[in-house]
Nucleic acid binder design. Sequence first.
DNA 1: CTGTTAGCGCCTTCAA
DNA 2: TTGAAGGCGCTAACAG
Lengths: 339, 339
Amino acid sequence: MRQGSATIRDVAREAAVSVASVSRVMNGHVSVHPETRARIMAVAQSLGYVPHAGARSLSLSRSHAIGVVLPDLHGEFFSEIVRGMDREVTARGYHLLLSNMHADAVLAAQAVRSMRGRVDGMIVMAPQLDTQALDEALPPDMPAMLVNSSPGVARAALRIDNAAGIAASVAHLVAQGRRALVHVSGPPANIDAEERRRGFLDAMARLAPEVEPVVIAGDFHEESGGAAVAMLRARGIACDGIVAANDMMALGVMAALRAAGVDVPGAVAVTGFDDIPLARYLGLTTIRAPMAEMGARAVARLIDALEGGELRAEEETIATELVIRSTTPGSVIGSGGSV
Amino acid sequence: MRQGSATIRDVAREAAVSVASVSRVMNGHVSVHPETRARIMAVAQSLGYVPHAGARSLSLSRSHAIGVVLPDLHGEFFSEIVRGMDREVTARGYHLLLSNMHADAVLAAQAVRSMRGRVDGMIVMAPQLDTQALDEALPPDMPAMLVNSSPGVARAALRIDNAAGIAASVAHLVAQGRRALVHVSGPPANIDAEERRRGFLDAMARLAPEVEPVVIAGDFHEESGGAAVAMLRARGIACDGIVAANDMMALGVMAALRAAGVDVPGAVAVTGFDDIPLARYLGLTTIRAPMAEMGARAVARLIDALEGGELRAEEETIATELVIRSTTPGSVIGSGGSV
DNA sequence: CTGTTAGCGCCTTCAA
DNA sequence: TTGAAGGCGCTAACAG
């Protein structure tokens, strides 16, 4: 992109051929005399010629890059998702153009627009943006995959099965005879948080219809887990199992419970969601959300579409997995993965 | 990048002006009649016109994108570095083009080349590539910053101060009267690992010249920490402090020690390096490596250079910070940050 | 098998 | 203040 580099014309002149021949050789096209080919390759080599990807994509109307717009999410997620995307994208010969998006819809729209002309498609993850904002931000003719975003937009989408995940946790606890379950939810504006909350209520209605389920509002941060426990105790709410909407809050719950001398999992069982590395270390039973696979899948679907397939505006759901550790007791029979 | 989008010509035609005027308006240039400007903007708006960044960068020879080539590193680092870069890059109106690089030099070269014509500069992090491979991979005229890479190349570089960090750990332990220190090193081909190993030996020579320092080879993975402890015990090597080359190994060390009934930090103190989130949770004393700041700094230096400044081929070092937790006892007086 | 020639979408002198 | 025209580097017909 800077001054010095040799262009296709330099190679052509030096090899005494036309740029077309150079282009043919560089792109492995047919019909080039072996001798000319050899000469051209030698010259290209000696000049250190590397095709200018920008020019190439302008002429081909194809950048082989896909834009990724992510919210400012936690370290674990970020790296996992991007890792999955990167794996797939590299295997397919594409590049990833990154752009973070802070919860602001205006900035989001700007980030999305700024990618026109540099990517062939986009992957947008916007758990906190509403349908309309997303719709306005995405150019209508831009192939895009929505990941864990608000439903309602006629776009191809991917989301983890929050409801089934939470339901698995509830089933697991219910199978142990626990009924007084409490859900510590995430921020209300967040689509994942909302689905988990609903999933909890639905699962309770199905699996323990005789009890009135309790939901305490949290915000996905560790502290709100501790706060939830404090509230529970202050109000004297009976509880033998806490289903947190994510692992960080579950950790807060565990710490508060133990600090208060409550036996975990003896008196109260705890489950989280996400399966962050800490969960494994601290023995937290949780729902594993396969973020890397999700990223890879999003890329795969998008590129498939870009290369001729259809990008059907349907939502695909990614299965989660219940990982039983020491915050819920014993190996329970028949409480496998999903519900 | 697809078919539908309106081009500058569509806007020009619709507004009954030349493309030059549209261009002037879009780029906020002077000398455009207010009336024409208004008309053009109205048309652009109604057509949903968004400038084609690819074409723009071809004609300007400026892509406002910077390429990032990273090794396949652990989640924590990856996200922290990229977060720092993203923050800076967004603030400056640039984009990040990502590319992973698996330890193979050929693939690395290819990854780097594939970015010509799509980025204005690059940030390369290659702790396991040697100088020559790096040199060959980077186009001579491509502005680039090396991050935690092999020294010796005449390029601008940034690296965390591994030696000072380890020295701080050693000083901290020595200040507690510990002398029988053991270092569990990282993989020998890794530049960070090597610098930490050397840093340990140098610090020991300086701070505890009377003892023969012990180094056990690890590989940055948790298991090798446990293996190191096993070896220590099998050989009956005396030891009252273990300085691991990274946190994961330190965790392995802690687990093995405790499993063997050894009191930590009573009998043996343990320190790590990196300060991953787990370190905080498990109370591991460690050296904090500010990866986000490092990423941001790399971007800042690169963009400064791209926008007129000089990109001097000098190495800048990023300071680390000793974080004392419970795997090394008590608050020790006078053992602050660096040595 | 090879060269010529239009663009891809935009920016920018140079004239008017 | 505005328009016409060339060019950024490359690819893809279309002729030879």
